[in-house]
């Protein structure tokens, strides 16, 4: 039971950190910062040049 509570707390901390980070506005002038990584062809990675932020690519 201790282990379950511990894991739930850790997941909760991560979820909270994720939500807080996404709600924090980017500083002015940094809205479109992007480093285009070219080491692989995984298009679901945000660092890839062809990543479209989860839009449909049909």
């Amino acid at each position: 039971m201790k282990a379950v509570i511990y894991v739930v707390i850790l997941v909760g901390v991560y979820a909270l950190a994720y939500i807080l980070n996404h709600r924090t506005k980017k500083p002015a002038g940094c809205e479109n910062l992007r480093e285009e990584c070219s080491s692989c062809h995984i298009v679901s990675c945000p660092a890839n040049a062809v990543y479209e932020g989860g839009k449909d690519r049909d």
């Binding site: 850790l10 991560y14 950190a17 807080l20 980070n21 924090t24 506005k25 500083p27 940094c30």
Partner: peptide, 14 residues
């Protein structure tokens, strides 16, 4: 812990 730490670091820097 690593994933949370990265998120929090990014938030504070932002």
């Amino acid at each position: 812990v690593i994933a949370s730490f990265v998120q929090l670091t990014e938030m504070f820097i932002k």
